[in-house]
Structures are given as C-alpha cells and as structure tokens.
Computed example of a mutant assay.
Amino acid sequence: MTDSVDVLIVASEPPSYAHPGDAGADLRSAVALRLEPGERALVPTGVSIALPDGYAAFVVPRSGLAAKHGITIVNSPGTVDAGYRGEIKVSLLNTDREAAYDVAVGDRIAQLIVMPVTRATFIPVAELPESARGEGGFGSTGYGTQTGVNA
C-alpha cells in the first residue's frame, strides 16, 4: 500500500489522479487562452493548498502535451513550499515553432506531485571529501552509445 498525506485544498476542481498508482495529479486551467508559437503564459489553476511541514509539491509538465504539442513548463519543476498559501499557477510555454495551442477552461495543463522533503543543515568546510565522480558534470560521463564514442 502506498503512503498518503492529507492536503488541505481550496479549489472548484481539485487535482485528480488519472490512474491508480500515478505519481502526479492533474492540474487544470482556470482560464481559456491561446499560446502562440514560442509564447509563454502564467496560467491560473484555481487551486490553493496547505501542505504539512516536511512536504513540498512539484508542478511538472504533462508528457502528452509535451510530445504531441510541444507544451512544457518554463520553470519545471515548479516548487510549492509548505508555507505557500496562494494559488498555484503554471508557467506554460509553447515550444512549437509554427502552431498555436489553445487552452480551454478545465484542460489538464500540468501535474502536481506531493513529496516529503528533508531540510539540509549546511556545514561549512575548507574542502569537500573526494568521490569517484569528483568535479565532473554537464556531460562529463558522455552521451554517446556507439562503441568507443563518448563525446
């Protein structure tokens, strides 16, 4: 059985899970709008939540919108902190170079994932301990799949 957490919510239409076991609950647009190619808009959802301490919610793109229409979220994932009580809004971006995308009231535009989070205690030190990876980042492990190619 999966753990669950009670989240207080003010919404005319609360987020909902499409299938059992889904990680993300669908957020819906509270307004109708058109996203022209390359345009972005901050889209209200009509949803405000009160997360318990020790939790955060993350607003992430819907894979179908991204794959079929090039609709994504500018600041993905968007973070909703436990202390935030305002409306959740989604910064949608139309990455399609040619086609506009129409959003209707009630359209599923993003997903909300609620997760426990740990607060870190940052401890200043003169230098960090070594690791196998070291300072390698931003493609340092390569991305090629051909034998001998690791560009």
Rank of each mutant, 00 (worst) to 15 (best):
T2G: 07
T2W: 02
D3T: 00
S4M: 08
V7Y: 04
A11Q: 01
A11G: 04
A11K: 00
E13S: 11
P15E: 00
S16T: 08
Y17D: 10
A18I: 06
D22C: 06
G24E: 03
D26T: 03
D26C: 09
A30W: 09
V31F: 07
A32Y: 07
R34N: 11
R34Q: 15
L35G: 04
L35E: 06
P37W: 09
G38H: 05
R40M: 15
L42R: 14
V43L: 11
P44A: 15
G46E: 09
S48M: 11
I49Q: 05
L51V: 03
P52H: 05
D53R: 03
G54H: 10
G54P: 02
A56E: 03
A57M: 00
A57F: 00
F58H: 06
V59W: 01
R62K: 13
L65H: 12
L65Y: 14
L65E: 12
A67Y: 15
K68H: 15
K68F: 15
H69C: 10
T72E: 12
T72I: 10
T72L: 12
I73S: 13
I73L: 13
V74S: 12
S76C: 14
G78H: 06
T79I: 05
V80R: 01
V80Y: 02
D81F: 02
D81A: 03
D81R: 02
A82L: 05
G83D: 12
G83H: 08
Y84I: 02
R85V: 07
R85E: 09
G86P: 01
I88S: 00
S91C: 14
S91F: 15
L92E: 14
L93A: 06
N94R: 15
T95H: 14
R97W: 03
E98F: 15
A99C: 14
A100Y: 07
Y101I: 13
D102E: 15
D102F: 14
D102P: 02
G106A: 13
R108G: 12
A110D: 13
Q111V: 10
V114P: 01
V114H: 06
V117D: 01
V117A: 00
A120C: 09
T121R: 13
P124Y: 04
P124Q: 02
A126V: 10
A126P: 10
E127G: 03
E127D: 13
P129M: 05
E130N: 12
S131D: 03
G136S: 07
F138W: 08
G139I: 02
T141F: 05
Y143R: 08
G144C: 09
Q146L: 01
V149P: 01
A151T: 11
